[in-house]
């Protein structure tokens, strides 16, 4: 089911959380709302869910205006950052909850409810812990239970609020991949909120970059990374260097012992960090004293025999089109 957000604004005491946001989310896609804290992404998610009401603007599901619909009538699934599992119920009962509270006319019988709950737990690979209490599970397990619970009511839309924010880095990565695979299997329109650009780039079909209550750009991961629409997007999605008014990615910068072309800048190596297949080099520019971050391939690093304190020439590679946002500024 597709989602359309039309000109939604929301004010919380003192601050404008959302300012005339409009957005289209095609059916079946996995979309990330990406932005720093305060960008309004969680507020927008909650408005789509019906947990908050917009001050102005409308929300449409599959073309129908759903703005006035109560959250329980919207057929959305919501996964909270801190899981919000029902603490006094077993895992199975948590997953079965949505089915149990259906009105008698649409409620399946007891056997059917249990069957469906077990099916979902199998889907998230947790059928073995069906009888346990949420307190006995790890964070990653709890989040998967929360997901199963949300899916139990066969929602048209799945909404996830920083679903992996409370987890360890390693667990986060595993669950990210797992979410992607799950989405490929069940194809429910899904929207998740994150402040981690790596997560958004890796998982989403489409990224909505938000800042201060506004949408900065909407596009595929390649689009927002390679063709950013504004300096904010460029900076938020990765490291940048500033060369003569141009923003350049660390891997688009060349290092050499001799000057290569007119744009070359002399710099002193301050720090070397091997990082798998690349080496991250931090340099102090001698003119202007800016800090430059460069990523070089391991072979190049060995070839150059770089040492701390060496002076090398730094030249940005030509990118087409070049990213110029505003005038030259001190770094």
């Amino acid at each position: 089911m597709s989602i359309e957000v039309r000109d939604v604004s929301k004010v919380f005491v003192g601050s404008q959380a959302l300012n005339g946001v409009s957005l289209e989310i095609p059916a079946g896609e996995l979309v990330a709302l990406l932005g720093p804290s305060g960008s309004g992404k969680t507020t927008l998610l909650r408005i789509i869910a019906g947990l908050e009401a917009p001050d102005s603007g409308t929300i449409h599901f599959h073309g129908e205006d759903a703005t006035e619909r109560h959250v329980r009538d919207r057929r959305v699934g919501f996964v909270f950052q801190h899981y919000a599992l029902f603490r006094h119920m077993s895992v199975l009962e948590n997953v079965a909850f949505g089915l149990r509270v259906r009105p008698p006319s649409t409620r399946p019988n007891e056997a059917e409810i249990r069957r469906r709950a077990h099916d979902l737990l199998r889907l998230v690979q947790l059928d073995g812990v069906a009888g346990r209490d949420p307190s006995e599970l790890s964070g990653g397990q709890r989040q998967r239970v929360a997901l199963a619970r949300a899916l139990a009511v066969e929602p048209n839309v799945l909404l996830l609020d920083e679903p992996f924010g409370s987890l360890d880095a390693k667990v986060r990565k595993e669950l990210r991949r797992w979410l992607r695979r799950l989405h490929d299997e069940i194809h429910v329109t899904s929207v998740f909120v994150t402040h981690d650009q790596e997560e958004a780039l890796e998982v989403a079909d489409r990224i909505v970059v938000m800042n201060e209550g506004r949408v900065e750009q909407v596009g595929t991961p390649e689009e927002v990374y390679e063709h950013p629409a504004s300096e904010f997007v460029y900076r938020f999605l990765g490291d940048v260097n500033l060369f003569h008014g141009r923003l350049v990615r660390p891997h688009d910068v060349e290092l050499a012992r001799t000057a290569q072309g007119a744009g070359a800048v002399l710099a002193t190596v301050r720090h070397l960090r091997p990082f798998g297949a690349v080496v991250r080099v931090e340099l102090d520019g001698l003119d202007g004293g800016q800090t430059i971050e460069v990523e070089v391939a391991r072979e190049r690093y060995v070839e150059l025999a770089l040492q701390k304190g060496d002076q090398v020439y730094v030249s940005p590679r030509e990118v087409d089109p070049p990213h110029r946002f505003g005038r030259e500024r001190p770094a």
């Binding site: 919380f12 005491v13 019906g50 947990l51 908050e52 009401a53 109560h70 959250v71």
Partner: peptide, 10 residues
């Protein structure tokens, strides 16, 4: 100033 209610869905 509007009477803002937190979690007014409750």
């Amino acid at each position: 100033m509007s009477l803002h209610r937190k979690a007014s869905v409750l």
